[in-house]
Structure formats: structure tokens, C-alpha cells
């Protein structure tokens, strides 16, 4: 079986080109030396030292956001040079020996500082043997460190592709609980499911009981499953004095086939029109909600 499900040599070259455009000649030279040392020694220790020492030699220049579709839809988003150089370095780890490769990556995770964890979780879509990192991803979702959670949740195509339904639902719930930008989760609509919708509805009721605000993005995940039981909640947010809640209700109504919801939306030609001309979308709701 091939270790990588994409052309890792090509992607390694593409990433290296981005690094080269932002690194000093000394840093590039250092990276080349490290590669030569690794190819000669072929030891995990050699690999680990370079991985850990990276920021000391590359610095932390910001890297412009870049999409690399041929790398399993990898997204360089909010990166600094040290993080991207560590990603490139991960692609240099010999992967032919499956168990050795997996042990080396797991060891990196287990001794990782915060920035290394952020890098490693962000690298999930690029690691070899992609089926092997499901439990590790679920472990990362249990983290209480914001940056680690964002590395897994935001513009990361790995979880939607590989997590089973309970683990996926945990990820989405955790994102809502910790006020992460839910709309930036890759595969959010594709992986919507009834179980998650029911959990989120119960959660909304708890928040109401406690007199706390509800992230309007929650209704996006409920929308495809609106039925007689869910409809009173939609009516409730439709009647909210917060305009962003009413907008979320309108969007939810627009994304369901449930007739009473469709009828509700028709009560406001203004909102229905805004949805039709795309001036009201889940993205505009997310942006409005984040400044509240």
C-alpha cells in the first residue's frame, strides 16, 4: 500500500518553493544541511532535533494564506515560516516502514509543545497512512488549548474525511462550546447529521435555561432536520430581538424542505430576498455573531 494518498514529492516541492520565497539564505542553507544529515544518518533522533529546533533557525515570518488543492486540499492559513518549514520537514520523514513512521509521529505528538502540537494537528491531511490518525485527532479535540483546537477545526480537511460520526459530532460541539469559527470547519454541511442536530437542540435549550447566548451557527446544523418537533425553536429565534438570530432562522428555513419553515420565511420578503441575492449567508451571520 502506498504511504501517501497524494503526490508527496510534488507537494514537498511546492511547499519548499513557498519557504524559499520567505526564508533568509542562511535558513534555507540550514534546512538543506539538515536534510543531508537526515539522509545520511536516517535516525529518528536526527529528525526530532531539526523538527524541534526549527524556529531558532527559520524565524517566524508570516506566510500568506495559500490553498494547495493537490495536497488533499491542504490550506496554509495563518501560518508562520517555522510552522510551514516543520510541515515540509514532516514530508522528509522516511515513510516506507509503516510502524516506524507511525511511532515517530506519535512520539512527536507526545513530546510536543503548544506550537508543535498546532503544527502537527494542522499537518494531519498531509501525513502518510491517513487512516492511522483518527484516535490522535479525537485526542486533540479533547484539548483545552484554543490554538490546538483551531488547528484541527479550521480549514482542516482531515476530520471530515476520516472521523466517524461520534468523533465528528464531538468536534463540532467542542467548536461551538469554545466559540471557534464554526463556519470555517471543512465539511460542515456534508457531515451534518440528525444525531448532531438533536444534541445541539438540547444544548440550545440548556443555554436558554441559563440565560446565556446561543451561537447562531448552531441553526445551520439543525436546518436540514427541521420537523414538527424542532419548529417551535425556529419560531423562537425568528421572534428574537437580535437581528442575527432572526437571520439565522431565515437561513435555516431556506435550507430545509419542511413546509411550515418555508412558509415562515415567506413572512419576510426582505430576508427571503437577501438570501436569494446572497447578501445574507451563513458567512455573514458568522461574521456578525463574532463581533457581538
Amino acid at each position: 500500500m502506498e504511504p501517501y494518498y497524494y503526490d508527496s514529492a510534488l507537494v514537498s516541492n511546492r511547499i519548499h518553493a513557498i519557504i524559499a520565497a520567505h526564508a533568509t539564505p542562511q535558513a534555507l542553507n540550514w534546512l538543506q544541511q539538515q536534510l543531508a544529515l537526515l539522509q545520511e544518518a536516517k535516525t529518528t533522533q536526527r529528525f526530532n532535533i531539526t523538527f524541534t529546533a526549527m524556529p531558532r533557525f527559520t524565524g517566524k515570518t508570516p506566510i500568506p494564506d495559500t490553498h494547495i488543492p493537490e495536497a488533499n486540499n491542504f490550506f496554509i492559513y495563518g501560518y508562520t515560516l517555522d510552522r510551514l518549514a516543520r510541515i515540509w520537514w514532516l514530508l522528509q520523514l522516511p515513510s516506507e516502514d509503516r510502524s516506524r513512521y507511525i511511532a515517530a509521529i506519535e512520539d512527536l505528538f507526545s513530546a510536543a509543545d503548544m506550537n508543535e502540537q498546532i503544527t502537527l494537528y494542522g499537518a494531519l491531511p498531509l501525513l502518510a497512512y491517513p487512516g492511522e490518525w483518527k484516535l490522535r485527532t479525537a485526542e486533540g479535540v479533547r484539548s483545552n488549548i484554543g490554538g490546538v483546537l483551531e488547528a484541527i477545526m479550521v480549514h482542516n480537511p482531515y476530520p471530515a474525511k476520516y472521523l466517524d460520526e461520534p468523533a465528528w459530532n464531538q468536534l463540532v460541539m467542542k467548536a461551538i462550546f469554545t466559540d471557534k469559527p464554526v463556519h470555517l470547519i471543512t465539511g460542515l454541511d456534508e457531515r451534518a447529521n440528525l444525531q448532531l442536530a438533536q444534541i445541539l437542540r438540547d444544548y440550545a435549550h440548556e443555554r436558554w435555561a441559563a440565560g446565556r447566548k446561543i451561537n447562531p451557527m448552531l441553526w445551520r446544523l439543525i436546518a436540514p432536520f427541521i420537523d414538527n418537533e424542532m419548529m417551535p425553536d425556529i419560531n423562537r429565534i425568528w421572534a428574537s430581538d437580535q437581528i442575527v438570530d432572526k437571520e439565522a432562522a431565515a437561513l435555516a428555513c431556506a435550507h430545509t424542505g419542511f413546509a411550515p419553515a418555508k412558509a415562515l420565511l415567506q413572512q419576510s420578503p426582505e430576508l427571503a430576498g437577501a438570501i436569494a441575492d446572497q447578501s445574507l449567508t451563513w458567512v455573514t451571520v458568522a461574521e456578525k455573531a463574532s463581533v457581538l
Binding site: 483545552n144 484554543g146 490554538g147 461551538i176 469554545t178 466559540d179 471557534k180 469559527p181 446565556r212 447566548k213
Partner: peptide, 8 residues
């Protein structure tokens, strides 16, 4: 409130 410890 984008990356606080626990929700909100």
C-alpha cells in the same frame, strides 16, 4: 471570545 478556555 474566539479562543477562550471554555465556551464564553
Amino acid at each position: 471570545g474566539s479562543t477562550v478556555l471554555r465556551g464564553g
